[in-house]
Design a protein around this nucleic acid. Structure first.
Length: 866
DNA sequence: GCGGTGCCACTTTGG
DNA sequence: TCCAAAGTGGCA
């Protein structure tokens, strides 16, 4: 064991008595001024320091290493000091714990050089490295697998029997090895044969064992990670607690089987083929007790070390729902700025892999995936009498499950390769995982007082509207009930008989007369009730979803969404709790309720996005791709008219241009509403909307809509050709793919039912365009995130992604530099050599800034600065 | 009678 | 018989 193998940060407890010799030296060096005290540094310097991010506690070092440290130590070799411990809690801060950093010359693998090297490796190199690692592991794994499948299934059975008969079963979970005397040495192969399903709790490891563990961690061929919750369940448990706090983290260290001769038992033995005997499973307790004690602080440093190592190590890391793992580490140990350390994390997530293969099953459990994809193991048959027992295998023993998880992930990886999804997985989806974790770890401030005022205001207005509605209806009824509303509109008032329109909207399944917005719009001149209902619904939606709903998710005056990477069939992201992608953009006007006399205006404007504000000294910067799907359609179809629209008039807004063309009005006269309508019409038409739908959308007769449809498709002829090509490809292959190879199987493309088949055809066309747009938006996120993470100065945080729009929170002085970076990166996605991507159309980005999300103004960019 | 659950209709967003 | 989401409330 050599010093070179350690991080260069070493922590000391200063409340230990007697004070260790090294600590005494450091203290005296600090007093004499030979040592810099980082407490006196400015905030900005502190942020950029890497010393705090990872360190080894002094107590972890073996005796001879302590001696080595003591010998090599002279004051000059210590460059920084960082106070640790509960200094925030104490009014009179006293140093109770120190971290010192050795100069790079003293220790070769100093933390700073490690960090630098991992940042300086370009993204593609990291991917190449990962690919190489994976390929190596895969080959190795396959080689080992050949001819031993039967043996493995036997082993599973053996383990199961052992497990169910052991006293541990009563415990429901894997027994933790608690050697209160402290385990002095990390177990070798002889010990571990019996420990296939035991967890080593790192709290109870002795100093030497800890050192050996770190070593084993660094030499592991692969790591498998899962979170353990307070109720004892893990990420692999079927019934995963929704909001259960994390108790600890379980890590399976997969060793290079055969790499050490000591670990190789005699040839031919059954146990010799059981690779599990060289693997170790550790449990890392991460819960903090409310009061501080030095032992816990030492443990905390050690844990932090392990976890940050895991996040930046070069070997494959397997984790089911890896995003939750990254976010948990950030919540536990992430300080301001430390998010950059996880930027390069690439964790193999089997759920993401399975979603790429079949995007239609959006939330499979670990157990589901095992049943669906793990070929060699227990196949769970619902009708089998062993079904319950089989399922128990997948839920009882954490260590066994971790090994199954590893196998499952390897199987999924080879499937990804077979489907041509491997590159998409590695270059797009996996790098996105830490980005989403970092987003979830960041909170957006919200104006709570304003929100509560608005809630009361809207509540009052709703009461008024309800009373008016009851009055004009001539009876009391539940205004939110569509059934009751339908009875009044068509049963009592018989408005459908007064309407001139022949085809009134109907509900899907019951085929009743609809009470939708389109219907109410067409009835609004026949009776006052429809208009009141429309206004009621608008106000009610804003209040219940965007004001009260948002308040429910607020903690300490801020909110943070949960981002779902595998929640859509098209590759888009989705957000929930709250769904920040669905928050009203357009302000609504409401007339002032009677009892609100505070203001003089008769109408009040409500805009939910205005409630989102940037933090102090920060600005929101929004960057959105303009007409991304239409541009992609132009590229894919090669339609000359559409291409011309983007290549020539790059300066103008395309939807405004289209509006002025077909409505025959000058472009200056095109209103916002006109533009929105054109947008809706264009997308409806290109994705195959019928004439009735179009008529309803435009508010014109079916005949007029038919004419428009013909004219449009005549002008942009190749759109139809493109759609035909996609549909026929889908017919022959059974699936379609996006620009970066994302796939969507559409089995109904050959359905007998005409309706189902037509739907699948429209979905195929839509997927190719929407999925490709999603690819580009994700690529933009990754490139920008990587650029910021590798920048020594930039600190901009990604706050939200609203499909084509990225919302950042930027430190005020950095806005111009960052804006230029964002524009350059996003527009340069027109061609990406490494992905063989080359669009025929330019990509255009609109930038806007402001201190409130609802009030963003186009950015005035300074040009000409080098 | 009460509370949980799943489905439907409607709304918002994005293209 | 445009596509893709999430949230709310009624209703059985």
């Amino acid at each position: 064991m050599k010093m070179e193998n350690y991080e260069a940060c070493i922590g000391f407890d200063l409340c230990e008595t007697p004070l260790s010799t090294v600590a005494q030296k450091i203290m005296s060096a600090m007093r004499s001024g030979d040592l810099m005290d980082s407490r006196n540094e400015g905030e900005s310097t502190k942020k950029s320091k890497v010393t705090k991010k990872s360190s080894v506690h002094y107590s972890v070092l073996a005796e001879h290493e302590k001696n080595q440290l003591l010998e090599t130590k002279n004051p000059e070799s210590l460059t920084t000091l960082t106070p640790r411990g509960p200094i925030e809690l104490s009014p009179q801060p006293s140093i109770t714990n120190l971290t010192c950093q050795l100069s790079a010359g003293q220790v070769q693998n100093s933390i700073s050089s490690l960090c630098l090297s991992s940042y300086l490796i370009p993204q593609c190199d990291q991917e190449a490295l990962l690919l190489q690692n994976m390929e190596h592991k895969r080959k190795h794994f396959l080689k080992e697998d050949i001819g031993k499948e039967d043996m493995d299934s036997l082993n599973f059975k053996r383990k199961y029997i052992t497990c169910s008969n052991s006293p541990e079963k009563a415990n429901k979970h894997t027994a933790l090895v608690k050697d209160t005397g402290g385990m002095e040495s990390w177990p070798n192969s002889e010990d571990t044969r019996a420990l296939g399903k035991k967890l080593y709790d790192v709290r109870y490891l002795g100093d030497l064992a800890k050192v050996q563990l770190m070593d084993a961690l660094k030499q592991a061929a692969a790591l498998v990670v899962t979170l353990m919750y307070k109720d004892g369940s893990t990420q692999l448990s079927t019934k995963q607690a929704l909001t259960c706090p994390v108790k600890g983290i379980v890590v399976l260290l997969k060793s290079h089987a055969g790499s050490s001769p000591v670990n190789l038992p005699a040839h031919g033995g059954a146990l010799g083929k059981d690779f599990t005997c060289t693997d170790h499973c550790i449990y890392i307790h991460t819960e903090h007790s409310p009061f501080w004690d030095p032992k816990q602080e030492a443990h905390s440093l050690f844990v932090r070390n392990i976890l940050f190592w895991t996040l930046r190590c070069k070997c494959p890391v397997v984790c089911f729902n890896a995003k939750d793992f990254v976010r948990t580490v950030l919540q536990l140990y992430g300080e301001d700025g430390s998010w950059k350390h996880v930027a390069g994390f690439v964790g193999l997530d089997p759920r993401v892999a399975a979603w790429l293969i079949d995007p239609s099953d959006t939330a499979p459990s670990f157990e589901d995936l095992v049943a669906k994809y793990l070929e060699k193991s227990i196949t769970v048959k619902p009708s089998s009498k062993f079904s319950d027992a089989s399922r128990n295998i997948v839920s009882q023993n954490v260590c066994v499950n971790m090994k199954i998880l590893y196998d499952l992930t390897m199987d999924l990886c080879s499937k990804l390769k077979a489907y041509g999804l491997w590159q998409l997985f590695c270059t797009l989806e996996l790098p996105l995982i830490p980005i989403l974790a970092v987003m979830e770890n960041h909170r957006i401030p919200v104006d709570k007082e304003e929100m509560e005022r608005t809630s009361a205001l809207l509540g009052a207005r709703l009461k008024e509207l309800e009373q008016e509605a009851h009055f004009v209806a001539g009876e009391q009824f539940l205004i939110t009930s569509n059934n009751q509303l339908r009875e009044i509109l068509f049963g009592k008032l018989k408005l459908h008989l007064l309407s001139q329109r022949k085809h009134l909207p109907r509900t899907g399944l019951q085929n009743q007369l609809s009470t939708s917005e389109a219907m109410l719009n067409s009835l609004q001149y026949l009776h006052p009730l429809p208009k009141l209902i429309l206004e009621y619904r608008q106000v009610h939606k804003i209040k219940s979803t965007f004001i009260d709903g948002l308040l429910a998710y607020m903690k300490k005056g801020s909110i943070s969404s949960t981002w779902n990477q595998t929640g859509t069939v098209t590759g888009r992201l989705s957000a929930k709790h709250p769904n920040i992608q669905g928050i009203s953009k357009h302000p609504i006007q409401i007339s002032k309720p009677q009892n609100f006399k505070a203001k003089e205006e008769e109408t009040i404007t409500i805009s939910p996005r205005t409630l989102f504000v940037s933090s102090k000294d920060h600005t929101f910067l929004a960057a959105d791709f303009s007409q991304i799907e239409l541009r992609i359609l132009a590229h894919l179809s090669g339609d000359p008219e559409l291409l011309k629209l983007f290549q020539e008039s790059e300066r103008d807004d395309v939807f405004s241009t289209l509006t002025s063309q077909w409505k025959d009005i000058p472009i200056e006269r095109v209103t916002h509403m006109d533009r929105e309508q054109t947008k809706k019409v264009v997308y409806s038409v290109v994705y195959g909307a019928g004439k009735e739908r179009l008529a309803a959308c435009l508010g014109v007769t079916v005949l007029e809509a038919t004419h428009f449809l013909e004219r449009f498709l005549q002008k942009y002829k190749k759109i139809k050709d493109f759609a035909q090509t996609v549909i026929s490809q889908c017919h022959s292959a059974g699936y379609v793919t996006s620009i970066l190879g994302r796939r969507r199987p559409l089995p109904r493309i050959c359905a007998q039912n005409q309706q189902l088949r037509a739907q699948a055809e429209r979905q195929a066309v839509n997927f190719v365009v929407q999925g490709s747009a999603a690819d580009l938006c994700k690529l933009a996120m990754i490139h920008i995130f990587t650029a910021v993470a590798t920048s020594p100065t930039l600190t901009a945080r990604l706050v939200a992604q609203i499909h084509d729009e990225l919302l950042f929170e930027v430190e005020d002085p950095q806005v111009p530099e960052f804006a230029a970076l964002v524009r350059r990166i996003m527009e340069s996605l027109q061609q990406v050599q490494t992905l063989e991507l080359q669009l025929q159309v330019p990509l255009k980005v609109n930038l806007s800034v402001g201190h409130s999300w609802g009030h963003l103004a186009p950015l005035q960019e300074t040009v000409g600065s080098a």
